[in-house]
């Protein structure tokens, strides 16, 4: 199928979602966070990975929503699920029990060791901005086999050190998972609207491995709050395919109509 004629006709947000979707393989079991991860995971299910198993923390197991949920517990998730279990069962048997290959998360802040902050900006006792908190993420990030993270690239989000480690990436020194028994691999890729990053195999510091078409190294450097490194063999992220964009837009249009109460 043609991609060339699409090159000018997608947004950076769509590029991010399509790239994040492609990270999921058919047959994977994925514990899905709400928002961008949910959008990407459902795009994957509707394109190259029809057999991907999507699990939401509300207890909905193997769900196939027709529209994207606004909340983690929308009725659509339950109605289209293979089965719905209680929330304690979800966290204890399915996540902690080791049945999840990938946790797919978003975040407010991320640092160079892929630690996530969704708790607050500033000091805990006198926060500048109070964020929602951990939710399922602290245990998703450690009990899932590996973790994908997707968020928009900006200096506010990509900081050298997060104000608070809500959810473990590799710890403040990159060694947070060393010697810990029964723990997943942690973040294996971070997908933004500019690039794809992976942790350095040795230091665990996030390193750009692929730039999206039309994005320069300077663009990424300027949008990152630390001196970001680039892989020696830097790749160019493949363009979105026409069918991926069409299916994504259909999904978003359906979702918008439903959430507007139409």
């Amino acid at each position: 199928m043609s991609t060339l004629d699409m090159s000018q006709e997608y947004t950076s947000a769509e590029m991010m979602t399509v790239t994040a979707a492609r990270a999921l393989e058919n047959g994977m079991t994925c514990f899905v966070g709400i928002g961008l991860p949910s959008e990407a995971a459902n795009l994957a299910r509707l394109t190259h990975a029809p057999g991907v198993v999507l699990i939401y923390e509300s207890g909905t197991l193997q769900t196939k929503p027709d529209v994207l949920p606004l909340s983690i517990g929308d009725g659509e998730l339950c109605e289209s699920a293979l089965t719905t279990v209680s929330v304690p069962e979800m966290f204890r048997y399915w996540l902690q029990g080791g049945k999840v290959n990938v946790g797919f998360l978003g975040t407010a802040q991320i640092d160079r060791f892929a630690n996530l902050n969704t708790t607050l900006i500033g000091d805990y006792q006198a926060p500048k901005v109070r964020l929602p908190g951990g939710g399922g993420a602290p245990e998703i990030a450690t009990n899932a086999g590996e973790v994908f993270i997707t968020l928009k690239h900006s200096k506010r989000a990509f900081v050298k050190d997060v104000d608070f480690v809500t959810t473990l990436g590799f710890g403040r020194d990159g060694k947070g998972r060393d010697g810990v028994p029964n723990i997943g691999k942690g973040p294996t890729r971070v997908i933004t609207d500019l690039c794809v990053m992976k942790p350095d195999p040795e230091t665990k510091e996030l390193t750009v491995v692929s730039l999206h078409p039309g994005v320069s190294r300077e663009d990424v450097t300027e949008a990152t709050g630390w001196e970001i490194r680039f892989a020696d063999e830097l790749e160019s992220t493949p363009l979105p395919a026409e069918h991926e964009l069409r299916i994504l837009r259909d999904l978003k249009n359906r979702t918008e109509r439903q959430h507007a109460g139409e």
């Binding site: 304690p88 902690q96 708790t119 602290p138 450690t142 809500t166």
Partner: peptide
Amino acid sequence: ACAFEAGAAGLPLAVLRGYVGSEL
């Protein structure tokens, strides 16, 4: 979730493989 379950089970505490590396 575990703490609610432990409450229902009449236990004083819940045990989980959790909070690893979190500053909570």
